[in-house]
Amino acid sequence: MLLLIALAHAPLYLYASDPGIMHRVEGITFFDQAVNFFGQFVIDNRARAMFAVLFGYGLVLAFKSQLAKGISEKKAVKTIRRRSWYLILFGMLLAVVIGGQDILMAYGVAGLLVSWVLTRTNKTLIRTFIWITVFYVLITPLFWGFTILESGSYGFAPEVSATDTYFSTAVLKLITTPFIPIFIHMMFPVLPSVLLGIWIARYELLTKPEQHLGRMRRITIAGLIVSLLGAIPLSLIGNVWNPSYFTAGLVNGLHIITGIAGGLAYAMLFGIIGAKIKEPGRLTSSLMAVGKRSLTFYVFNEALLVVLLSPVALNLGGQIGNGLAALIAVGIWVLSVVLATVLEKKNKVGPLEALMRKLVYRNK
């Protein structure tokens, strides 16, 4: 998950490159083009959806953990909401102080919006999912259609520029940060994926995958097919066809909507892989170590992307293409794996996980 997010965010700092398709910059070399193609099919609007699925799953685990301690449902939901507020605060600090690309605020808002579902029946959960998903299916393509039509281009230029300073960036982020989660929830269907995560958590598909392998395989196959088919039209723009800007926006909306299925499929696929691993080896144990400290290393990855690529720091984003940016993202993630392994061997939790627990449970 963290690797895919780093790969998705790295191109956002390449301000010297010409816009490509949507949020990807134009590929110059064959490697650049291959990275873009891979990103359109595997990463874009899929990594975010997988994060949302896992976030929803985590809400159920946290809720059940509270109930197991004898805490009432009302107080358990209150704890979930408190954690969501702190996620929003962490996201604000990441965006303003560090200058990173944030999604924590959006998931914090999602936690506040869906926490009430945790105490309701599956029937209510499914009905809520259907209504919200239908809304996004109808609205998202149109929203993007008009957005691309208004922009007059198939792609968006990166929001950073060579003249950015740390101070100017911080001030701008301070002004715009309250609107970031609103923008994300308007433009991207985060809530359906979170609700899907809650649904699969109630059946313990990821925590007890060996009992559900048949169902998980079917979900994985169906999700991957929908995801791949939904990515094909976008991948053809600028290469095989040149549709109107409004049509291109509709196609991007389709890409986003089908990413919900892709994110769910990724979560199921990794669950299947996990069920097959009886004795975790060194690599698997290291990946598990990162997962246990995902909040810490999400922020760590974003901070390093800023340090290496942003014009307010080392400014590599103004000198390289998206191929090299992808390699830098992979390198940052590998460093995260190494550091997480060291923390695991020392039996230390991630510093942000420790801080979050202290803040959320300070009165317990």
Rank of each mutant, 00 (worst) to 15 (best):
A303W: 12
N301V: 12
N301A: 06
A289C: 14
Y298G: 03
W333T: 12
L343M: 14
L309D: 09
N347S: 11
G321N: 02
W333V: 09
P311Y: 02
K345P: 06
V307A: 14
N347E: 12
G321V: 11
S294V: 15
S336T: 08
G317Y: 02
L327N: 01
T341E: 03
G323T: 08
G318S: 07
F300H: 06
L295I: 09
F300C: 05
V338M: 13
A340Q: 01
M288T: 13
L316T: 12
K292R: 13
V330I: 15
P311S: 07
A289R: 00
K345H: 08
R293C: 09
Y298S: 12
V306G: 04
V312F: 02
V337M: 05
A303R: 13
L327W: 00
N322I: 09
S336E: 15
T341P: 03
A325L: 08
V312N: 09
F300Q: 01
V312P: 03
A329H: 07
L295A: 02
G318C: 10
N315P: 08
L305Q: 12
E344G: 03
F297S: 01
A340Y: 00
V312S: 13
S310H: 13
I328T: 07
P311E: 09
L308R: 11
T341Y: 10
Y298T: 03
V330S: 09
L308V: 01
P311G: 02
I320E: 03
K348A: 14
L295H: 05
L304E: 15
V307N: 07
T296Q: 11
L327V: 08
A313H: 07
Q319C: 01
G321K: 00
K348V: 06
V330E: 08
E344V: 05
V342E: 12
V307Y: 10
G331D: 09
V290H: 05
E302R: 07
T341H: 15
K345G: 14
S294T: 11
L295F: 15
F300K: 03
L316I: 11
L324S: 13
L287D: 05
L335P: 08
K346S: 15
L339E: 04
Y298R: 00
I328S: 12
A325S: 15
V307L: 14
F300T: 00
E344W: 14
K292M: 04
K292L: 11
K348N: 12
V299G: 13
V338I: 08
V307W: 10
G318Q: 02
L309V: 15
